[in-house]
Computed example of a mutant assay.
Amino acid sequence: MAGSQETYGKKEREKKRLKKQEDKKKKAAERKANSKGGGLENMLVYVDEFGRFTDTPPDPSQKVKVDAESIEIGVPKREAEEEVDPVHQGRVDFYDSSKGFGFIIDKVDQERYFVHVSGTTEDITEGNTVSFELEKGQKGLNAVRVKKI
């Protein structure tokens, strides 16, 4: 007859596995015995009027009544706004004609705007007074439709 197929290593691994299972069961029983318990009431958390978490329920006398019909769903309609002139005036602060770009300083708010040769309607040079419109570019507002005044 053949000998047992269990080696010393297999026996040791099996003992370790059983010990781990037993330790796990002991820890679970210990956690269950030491838990505060109390059921659902101990697990509830309330939010007060300032948005902080608290374990005390809100006072029903402080409840605010909201009229459901006053709630607007969607985007409110725009009211008529004043028409702002899209054409600005400024002075060419820097312009490199070989590279085809430069900067314009607005007369009103002294903001500096980028201008590219493709946004000009005629040739400009440094110091020219120009009129321009603004368009959103990759890195901010760009001056377009630039004309000498």
Rank of each mutant, 00 (worst) to 15 (best):
residue 1 M to G: 15
residue 3 G to Q: 15
residue 3 G to P: 12
residue 3 G to C: 13
residue 3 G to A: 15
residue 6 E to W: 13
residue 6 E to T: 10
residue 6 E to P: 00
residue 8 Y to I: 12
residue 9 G to H: 11
residue 10 K to V: 06
residue 10 K to Q: 14
residue 10 K to R: 12
residue 11 K to R: 15
residue 11 K to M: 11
residue 14 E to H: 12
residue 18 L to S: 12
residue 19 K to Y: 04
residue 20 K to D: 05
residue 22 E to N: 06
residue 24 K to C: 05
residue 24 K to P: 01
residue 25 K to H: 03
residue 26 K to V: 05
residue 27 K to E: 06
residue 29 A to Q: 09
residue 33 A to S: 08
residue 33 A to V: 05
residue 35 S to K: 14
residue 35 S to T: 10
residue 35 S to N: 14
residue 36 K to E: 09
residue 37 G to T: 13
residue 38 G to I: 10
residue 40 L to T: 12
residue 43 M to Q: 15
residue 45 V to T: 14
residue 45 V to R: 14
residue 48 D to S: 07
residue 48 D to M: 04
residue 49 E to W: 00
residue 51 G to K: 09
residue 54 T to W: 05
residue 55 D to W: 05
residue 56 T to K: 15
residue 56 T to L: 11
residue 56 T to D: 11
residue 56 T to F: 06
residue 57 P to C: 07
residue 58 P to L: 04
residue 58 P to K: 08
residue 60 P to K: 07
residue 63 K to I: 01
residue 63 K to V: 01
residue 66 V to G: 01
residue 67 D to S: 03
residue 69 E to A: 12
residue 69 E to W: 01
residue 69 E to R: 09
residue 70 S to Y: 01
residue 71 I to W: 02
residue 72 E to V: 05
residue 72 E to P: 00
residue 73 I to C: 01
residue 73 I to Q: 03
residue 75 V to S: 08
residue 76 P to T: 02
residue 77 K to Y: 00
residue 77 K to Q: 03
residue 79 E to A: 04
residue 80 A to H: 00
residue 80 A to R: 00
residue 81 E to F: 04
residue 82 E to T: 09
residue 83 E to Y: 11
residue 83 E to N: 12
residue 85 D to Q: 09
residue 86 P to S: 13
residue 87 V to K: 14
residue 88 H to L: 08
residue 88 H to V: 02
residue 89 Q to K: 14
residue 90 G to M: 05
residue 92 V to G: 10
residue 94 F to N: 12
residue 94 F to A: 12
residue 96 D to N: 15
residue 96 D to I: 02
residue 100 G to E: 05
residue 101 F to C: 06
residue 103 F to M: 03
residue 106 D to W: 02
residue 106 D to V: 04
residue 108 V to W: 02
residue 109 D to G: 07
residue 109 D to S: 10
residue 109 D to E: 12
residue 113 Y to S: 09
residue 114 F to Y: 09
residue 114 F to W: 08
residue 114 F to Q: 06
residue 114 F to D: 02
residue 118 S to Y: 01
residue 118 S to I: 04
residue 119 G to V: 04
residue 120 T to W: 01
residue 121 T to E: 11
residue 121 T to Y: 06
residue 122 E to A: 03
residue 122 E to W: 03
residue 125 T to K: 15
residue 127 G to M: 07
residue 127 G to A: 08
residue 129 T to G: 07
residue 129 T to Q: 13
residue 130 V to C: 03
residue 130 V to H: 02
residue 131 S to W: 02
residue 132 F to W: 04
residue 133 E to Q: 15
residue 133 E to L: 11
residue 134 L to Q: 03
residue 136 K to N: 11
residue 136 K to S: 09
residue 138 Q to S: 13
residue 139 K to T: 11
residue 140 G to S: 13
residue 142 N to M: 05
residue 144 V to R: 14
residue 144 V to T: 13
residue 145 R to H: 11
residue 148 K to G: 10
residue 149 I to Q: 13
